[in-house]
Amino acid sequence: MIIVHVPATSANCCVGFDSLGMALDWWATFRFEPSDVLKITGCPKEYADKNNLVVQAFQKTCQHLHQEMPNFHLDIDSDIPFSRGLGSSSTCVVAGILACDAWFEAHMNKMEILKIATEIEGHPDNVAPCIFGQAVTSFMDQLDPRMMIVPCASYHGLAMIPDYPIVTNEARKILPKTLPYQEAVSQVGHALCFIQALQVGNEMILAKSCQDFLHEPYRKKLIPDYDKIHSICQDLELGMWISGSGSTMLALSMDLARLEKLKQMVEQESPHILCRKVRVASKGAWVENE
């Protein structure tokens, strides 16, 4: 049996739109074992067929390796919610690629794995931290993803997950086509300071640098709870952002007491929001054999 463990992720990290993602210590587990027919368990019935994203990623990797697609029993054990901005699709993509690599003992390197994952996902900002762990900044160089790991200080996080989804395509439609030059300059400055604050653990700068101009002013309209949560985080001097396209919001701090206070306030004011404590995952997806 091949077992693949893949972390949830938070893309964009407020000021890193489409270019910065973070692995979270919240794991999905995928088990693969030989079978006479394709069998999928552990997911809704509508996803239990050959169109399952894990299966599609496995098949694409077979093509890359020039191997025949085998039959297997795939069992999925994941409570990472769909359409909440926590990288549930990326976990499936990375799991399928790593499982195929292990199945055929191909020993692909991580950059090769990243390229296949990016071809499936369309961009590397979610799949890169899935593969490498920590925070990862990335961009596309023609058809090739380029990335750098951003080692993070000992941050804890609070994922605040509303009981309603956000469809990524709808979240993209709401974005503007152009941006004023001065806002672009401000975005660069905030993003550079944010990355440094992540590395050295400067919480004051982290909170101050969480001011986005590219997507959050527009996407927050899709999240009725955003303004209330954002105001609470500002009062507590906590860095906070919309995770991926939403609807999850993530706050980060090295002070567990402040995150606990945030959790209590959110649960009291918004009982429909699930709060889950997380940490920045120090490593990315990994494989074990049984």
Rank of each mutant, 00 (worst) to 15 (best):
D36A: 12
K45S: 12
F72L: 06
L20T: 11
F72K: 04
M22W: 02
L24Q: 03
G16D: 07
P34A: 07
K39M: 09
A48F: 03
W27Q: 01
Y47P: 02
F30C: 12
K50S: 13
V37W: 07
T29M: 06
Q67E: 05
P70M: 02
C62Q: 07
F58L: 11
Q67D: 00
K39G: 08
E33Q: 14
K50Y: 06
C62Y: 03
G21N: 04
A48S: 13
M69Y: 07
W27V: 06
F58N: 07
K45Q: 15
H66Q: 14
F17Y: 12
N51L: 10
S35T: 08
S19N: 09
V54I: 04
R31A: 08
C62N: 11
V37K: 15
A57N: 08
S19M: 15
Q67G: 01
H64L: 08
D49K: 05
A48Q: 15
K45L: 05
T61D: 14
H64F: 05
D18C: 11
P44T: 09
N52W: 03
A48C: 15
M22P: 00
M22F: 01
T41E: 14
R31N: 13
E46T: 04
K50I: 14
Q63S: 11
A57K: 13
Q56E: 09
K45P: 13
